[in-house]
Design a protein around this nucleic acid. Sequence first.
DNA 1: GTGAAAGCGCTAACAC
DNA 2: GTGTTAGCGCTTTCAC
Lengths: 350, 350
Amino acid sequence: MASEVTTGATLKDVAERAGVHPGTASRALNPVTQGLVSEATVRRVHAAAKALAYRPNSIARGLKTNRTMTVGIVVPDLSNPVFAPMVRGAAEVLTNAGYSSVIADTDNDPAKEAEAFDTLRSRQVDGLLVASARRDDAAVRSLVEGGVPTVLLNRRTDRTALPCVMGDDTSGMEQAVRHLRALGHERIGYLSGPTALSTGLERARAFRQLMLELGGDLDPSLTEECMTYSVEEGTRTGRLLLDRARPTAIIAGNDQIAVGLLGVLEERRLRCPEDVSVVGYNDMPFVDKLSPPLTTVHVPHSAIGAEASRILLRWLQDGVPGSTTISLGVELVVRGSTSPVREQGAGQER
Amino acid sequence: MASEVTTGATLKDVAERAGVHPGTASRALNPVTQGLVSEATVRRVHAAAKALAYRPNSIARGLKTNRTMTVGIVVPDLSNPVFAPMVRGAAEVLTNAGYSSVIADTDNDPAKEAEAFDTLRSRQVDGLLVASARRDDAAVRSLVEGGVPTVLLNRRTDRTALPCVMGDDTSGMEQAVRHLRALGHERIGYLSGPTALSTGLERARAFRQLMLELGGDLDPSLTEECMTYSVEEGTRTGRLLLDRARPTAIIAGNDQIAVGLLGVLEERRLRCPEDVSVVGYNDMPFVDKLSPPLTTVHVPHSAIGAEASRILLRWLQDGVPGSTTISLGVELVVRGSTSPVREQGAGQER
DNA sequence: GTGAAAGCGCTAACAC
DNA sequence: GTGTTAGCGCTTTCAC
């Protein structure tokens, strides 16, 4: 007779082999209920389980207990270097707590996001980690109404009271602006991320606020908004900005935008940092190897994922959402793309 | 009475509302069995389902059908830029086929890998995509014995006959060596990836093979092996190599190693590409922005994930493993880190 | 074309 | 301490 490799042993098989009832076997195998069973039985059952290479069917358990020990993680684009570490940080904490992570990539598409939520709920995930939220996100709102424990990562929505873990954008922008002001820059350009995302809006607001406080030039012609966080948009808006203004420094809404901007500087024969200082945001891998190495705000993405998971786990355990928004500390990393402002006119026009 | 937001409607509820038996409702809702039900009933059931916002419980379905429509994806390190696109490519194909993806990050730890396989099997995944395999991987072998449909990505094992999708390492290395030879390089160094991984071994073999064929210098002092694919190891082995040899060009086992090497070149005041040409492998994001922009072999990681998923899907459908190993085309991308060899002695000693 | 009933593998309330 | 029983939500024979 062929050995039954594919079909694993069931609890009934284990019970039979140990000469006990399935119910007893279940108790013996579950660490929590194990105390209700005699030590000898526990040993026998465990031996039988081992002999049969018994693997509990968590699907069946989930059906009974109404908990799947699974959480859904929804990201806008896994190949974007800021989200992968977030997922990794989250998955690690989740795994250690016995949870599995189902991943969904929305490709920055609201329709796919809604679909992902649907699928995930169908799969009875116990909770959700969402990094794809737009400020006005109907799908996320319906999640709240559906009562699914959900924690937002990095991006938050405007009108929902969901817990959210993110980097401290105000602090990050403050460090960036102070750094530039300390170097003597007054005309500071700003290439904003999309303000349909909370990160884009909040960094832009913080920038304006800080410039107001520290007395920089708030000429609106010094600001341009990208439609997406991408190198291409950095290129496009960088050109627009430099076509009409002469900032001595530019802050970019994130590192991709900064990279696009660096390209524009090069194509216009403007040197960085001598002619224009540039500050990015996120501290993506390898931006320290660019030329010049990018001065940027380091955001602890992995920690964001980990912390969000802990909040979700607590929610799952207590049944009530815990903390609301928490901002993790960020830190400006000064590298080669920023330097003191040059004397007016000293070579700005090549 | 409080509205029952968290507990979704069940099939029984839908059936009741439509005035039919749950079995009938099930048939009406399932596209395959829908033909067995009168059109009027189908409409009534669908209406009821919609009204109750019915969401089928795929857990319960899985218990009955023995298929969870879930596949596990196991990667060694999600924050490594080569794996994220692979996962993304896989998840997209899988999602379109109605499957969900459970992700597991092994952190390059064999023990964690074994654990991940266990968990995933417990969760009754229909199949597995494994990108973390070592050449000698006991855990993967036991997967085969367990009969779990599994497709390997990028890295393959020595003695298992599992389907595997990867980049064509021989072709990649051939293009790299030919390029360098065409530029006049004869003393070509090689910073190998770990040969415990199939990619490390196969690229190293291909390198030696090609050098033999094209008549380059095969002095063993021109080769050094990294213990991991990392910038640090690139730095370490780069120093070792340059301490004892004077290659005019160096090929790195991957881009991280190349980045480490670039750092060593800088610290030794050797210019790239004037003094030493450098070739990487993988074409990670942003290596085109390094200085100099890295010449490297482009590997279609996202396509590897997608193709592996298709093979797995077919296996799941037909019940038999399809193709075995398939190599996807790779292409050398020539950028600024390689140039013609300089005259002997012309400035090599600063 | 539809209802009835069994059962996937497991857990938990209830006996004894 | 252990056996019994019911049932999680669904699919799928089998009747009719």
